[in-house]
């Protein structure tokens, strides 16, 4: 009896996974609303170290868009030194509640790889975010293949966030490059909601090379397209202003 129920659960997961995959491959823009395909390994590259926060924000946002929670975030002590430590207040403002986040800080890369291989097999997770800073030689073709297989078996979305690294061969389903994009200014030239320049570098069994400029809408828990000429955007054309006609000058604190 337990065998058959486990089998049914497994089949359901696989069915759910393929449904997502089809939806995503059907329209290249599908990820904007529904996040990245579940039960797969995706790579997110922030080529420059300064874009690391944007890469992490994008990864968390895709997990939220896919409703793939809880999120298990694994990083090394070296990343903790280079990037700072995750701040629950800011993550909550991105939409990720602290009760659906477990953080793992590991001494080195080999411990990180071992822990992520274990976590990717745990079907109780929604998303596994593995953050590395610098060239992570351990994340080679074999290791990524292993993660991909584990993700397919358990239905966990595995995001490999590579900060300050150049793309290397891997078995990931998709590979993205993320850079910070100028946000649409609020009144008094205040920085607006998070905006990203996203490029799909590689997609297994599909076209690649498109790029988007997107904003993260926390309240709707989805991405929305943003005008590409963001830098020279005039305040008058800004829709956000219409939503908030409250104060002429934004001075908080």
């Amino acid at each position: 009896m337990p065998d058959s129920t486990a089998l049914i659960a497994r089949l359901r997961r696989i069915a759910a996974g393929t449904a997502m995959l089809q939806a995503t491959s059907a329209s290249p823009d599908g990820w904007l609303k529904r996040g990245l395909a579940r039960g797969q390994l995706h790579e997110i590259y922030a080529v420059q170290a300064e874009d690391g926060a944007s890469g992490a924000g994008f990864g968390i946002a895709t997990a939220l868009a896919a409703r793939a929670l809880p999120l298990f975030w694994l990083r090394t002590e070296a990343a903790e030194q280079a990037q700072g430590r995750p701040h629950a207040g800011g993550l909550a403002e991105l939409g990720l509640g602290a009760d659906s986040l477990v953080l793992g800080i590991l001494p080195d890369e080999s411990a990180l790889l071992r822990a992520s291989a274990d976590a990717a097999r745990c079907a109780g997770l929604g998303t596994l975010l593995v953050e590395t800073v610098g060239p992570a030689r351990g994340l080679d073709l074999t290791a990524t293949r292993r993660l991909m297989l584990a993700a397919e078996g358990s239905g966990v979305t595995v995001l490999s966030l590579r900060v300050a690294a150049t793309p290397a061969p891997s078995a990931a389903a998709t590979r993205w490059s993320v850079r910070a994009a100028p946000s649409r200014a609020l009144e008094a030239d205040a920085p607006g909601v998070p905006a990203f320049d996203v490029e799909c570098l590689r997609r297994r069994g599909g076209p690649a090379g498109e790029s988007w400029r997107v904003e993260w809408d926390r309240d709707a828990q989805s991405f929305r397209g943003a005008p590409v000429s963001g830098a020279g955007l005039s305040v008058a054309a800004d829709r956000t202003v219409a939503h908030h006609p409250a104060a002429p000058v934004r001075r908080s604190g």
Partner: peptide
């Protein structure tokens, strides 16, 4: 609602 994040996601300590 509608406000951009007021706190960073990474904090240096």
């Amino acid at each position: 609602e509608g406000e951009p994040p007021m706190r960073p996601i990474y904090l240096f300590d």
